[in-house]
Design a binder for these strands. Sequence first.
RNA 1: CGGGGCGUAGCGCAGCCUGGUAGCGCACCUGCCUUGGGAGCAGGGGGCCGUAGGUUCAAAUCCUAUCGCCCCGACCA
Length: 581
Amino acid sequence: MRYSQAFIHTLFEAPKEAETPSHIFLLRGSFVYPLAAGLYSLLPLGHRAVEKIKGIIREELDAIGGMEVTMPVVNPAELWKKTGRFFNIGEELIRFKDRREREFVLAMTHEEVVTDMAKQFVRSYRDLPVMLYQIQTKIRDEARPRAGLLRVREFQMKDAYSFHPDFADLDVYYPRIFNAYLRIFARCGLKSTPIEADSGIMGGSGSHEFMLESAHGEDHFVLCPACGYSANTEKAVGVKAERTPCAEPLAMEEVSTPGVKTIADLMGFFGAPEKHFLKTVAYIADGSPVLAVVRGDFNVSVTKLAGHLKAVHLDYAPEKTLLEKGLNPGFLSPVGVDGMRVVFDTAITGGALYIAGGNAPDMHLKNVLAGRDFEVKERADISEVREGDRCAACGGAELRIKRGIELGHTFKLGTKYTAADSMDVTYLDGAGAPNRVVMGCYGIGVERLLASVIEKWHDEGGMQFPVSIAPYQIILSQLGNQPEVVAMAERLYSKLGAAREILYDDRGESPGVKLKDADLIGIPVRLVVSRKLEKSGEVEIKIRQTGEVKICPESELEATLEAIFKRLAPSIENLPYMDEG
RNA sequence: CGGGGCGUAGCGCAGCCUGGUAGCGCACCUGCCUUGGGAGCAGGGGGCCGUAGGUUCAAAUCCUAUCGCCCCGACCA
């Protein structure tokens, strides 16, 4: 491609809304163009990079037996009502009616549609297992799109679905997709960290998120530096240091605390550390109020609490509801609560005295003792791990909390969508008996992956693409418009263009502009021809990621490039592969 | 949805407080010149000042409403 003919319009200055590196460089480099909040057009450079990523995904999924399909974005609401998601999902799911008043949704994933296909065509155990995938537009009306392509409302997602005769077969298949994911990210130049994720009813090792460690990530995960245990913060389990029981339990007493509500205020008021308090938070779980009690130095994990309660909807209880129940926000307490479900965190043990709310305005209770002043009927791990908690897996090291971008998610779905009360998908086994189909689902956000690569691979001057997903492998910068220089550039362009994708900067711009643009758009290998080099029959080769520069005789150029590209190709060796049995 | 910030040319900004012919840099167009790190000279095109009301002889500027965008938080099947 000749730059002079290309639809590439780089910006000297970034639009002020851009703050994260990937957002800034995608805009400046003419990769994307914003249409509205969270909605972007992919310009030619961005489009090409995304197509490269999709190519890698296709290769890896085809290699483990996947078959690509295409499914509609507009889905009949009826299908989504069958699985319950029409009702369970909030405003993120766009619903509308067509001209005949029939209800539809815009698909945010395709479990319903693909399961409907499976229901139609999977009849026999001979049809299983099977894996179908699609790379298509998904629509989610996100509350807050942000950071360019990292979180958007319309995006391409690779979604894969596997169907199995039973759980054992899914367990056998799962490592293959897990390993394919590791290869996909590695081939895009990223080191991904698979972490245990919340898998709801499935439990165990049923779900993994593949994280890229990044300061601009919006997710947090826990990592044990000693044993390698890693998990989503919401799900991660840590060892909670217990408080030592007091020798002589003092009697509970009321303390007037006008306007003192938060743990921080209370610490000041009582002159006691965080862990001496009980933090009581009121939720509404599927319509019923629930109190969650954790120690003052912990926070409630909504995920763990919802999992424990088996609740679909879990929200903070509105102040109004609390007052109706005779509860006072800011002074909540497990003491003296009747007729309401109260869940205690496992950190709250007997023997130690606590300071709790008084369940009355402007009042707290001192010297509260579990078992004496309130009953602990229900105990569960409902608190979030903290940086520095000890690892529950190896018992030794202190857990670290990292920020990251979720690149992909693998999930043993089980029978959530194939169950009788959902879409009811069965097949006949060898004995002619009906059996329930078991599913797995596996997603990757394609544009987010592009943005993640830039988050990882950039410097002050711009992007530094891995050769595997760069929109062009080579940029040929012609510096000087002397006939000999032009002739040499043209010669190289046609000769190298046969084997590589090459962007030939033939513009009449000054050298500074051309070189800055080459850096900005991050093409991995830059070739320069100039008057000086032309005279000696040489070409300059610069590698964008490393900054290495070498001068190469034109006659040796192809062999030299061959070696360079071989060296630059991302490796898929030594990844934390799962045993495929 | 809560908190904060911003809407003036494609991009970055000034002008607004104190109302009076809409400006600067980059980009773009023409010509000359120039080719190793965002060159030079000369000429030029482009804006209902987000939108709608109001105040006023007069509104980018003051008032009201509304829409949009960004950041932090909540939320994220």
